[in-house]
């Protein structure tokens, strides 16, 4: 398989997806609205008079992102699916790799955009604007990458499974548990001004997680998708 061909096809597919997203707007507006409402639900559920809002920040942030990423995943392959183009695209000269990589990148861009909205919102709503944000940003980047890779694999495989909207999180959340735990930890520790050594340990765990899944998922997708 020719690497430069894979890259070129990936870029073509990604450009197509970006153009569709820019023109139709509906999906990302809906996901963004969902994310904002999710933050509100957390605020209603967890904030009490006189309670410390900053304590809820890690959970509210990461769970909101996990939920909105799931909603985005459910629509990730919808354009190809509705046009009946899935088989054609995955049987390109470069195999299914371009489709996988373009979709994973698309999901990463998408959830990255949601994060840029949700993060300030959570900090403002929960009164935590003073907390150091650097480690959380690093953790978010790693967490979103892992989520995009594993999520694309699971969403891509589930296309021909009934009740997949319910099954998708059922499979995804246990596998993503390490990133969720690590991400919440990083945010919580950095918010309370904890040990940078400990934060580094958690970030390393996320790097291992990402490395394993970036290597495994494209292979599994190529093996298990198809006719």
């Amino acid at each position: 398989m020719n690497p430069s061909l894979v890259l070129r096809l990936t870029w073509l597919l990604l450009k197509k997806d970006l153009r569709v997203a820019a023109r139709s707007r509906e999906t990302w507006v809906l996901v963004l609205l969902f994310a904002i409402l999710c933050v509100l639900v957390f605020a209603f559920g967890f904030l009490r008079e006189g309670g410390d809002g900053a304590e809820v920040v890690p959970g509210a942030l990461w769970v909101t992102l996990q939920f909105s990423a799931t909603v985005a995943l459910m629509r990730l392959f919808s354009a190809e699916e509705e046009a009946g183009a899935l088989t054609t695209v995955s049987r390109s000269v470069a195999g299914s790799a371009p489709l996988f990589f373009s979709k994973a990148l698309m999901q990463l861009i998408f959830t990255g955009g949601v994060t840029l909205t949700v993060l300030p919102l959570v900090l403002v709503f929960f009164g935590a604007t003073a907390m150091p944000i650097g480690p959380t940003l690093a953790a978010l980047l790693l967490g979103l990458l892992g989520q995009a890779v594993v999520g694309t694999l699971v969403a891509g495989l589930m296309l021909r499974v009934r009740q997949r909207d319910v099954l998708l999180p059922l499979v995804l959340y246990p596998i993503l548990a390490p990133t969720l735990i690590a991400g919440v930890k990083v945010t919580a520790i950095s918010a309370s001004g904890g040990d940078p050594e400990v934060i580094a340990t958690w970030l390393r765990l996320m790097v291992v997680f990402d490395a394993v899944f970036v290597l495994a998922c494209p292979w599994l997708y190529a093996r298990a998708s198809g006719p």
Binding site: V150, L157, I175, P178, A182, L205, A216, R223
Partner: peptide
């Protein structure tokens, strides 16, 4: 056939995931 392939792929993915879950919760 589809279900079988998907099931197998996810079972394979679950193996490294389990190791990582264990590691994560241990640190936790």
């Amino acid at each position: 056939a589809t279900g079988r392939r998907i099931g197998a792929a996810l079972a394979v993915l679950a193996a490294p995931a389990s190791a990582l879950i264990h590691l994560a919760v241990k640190l936790w």
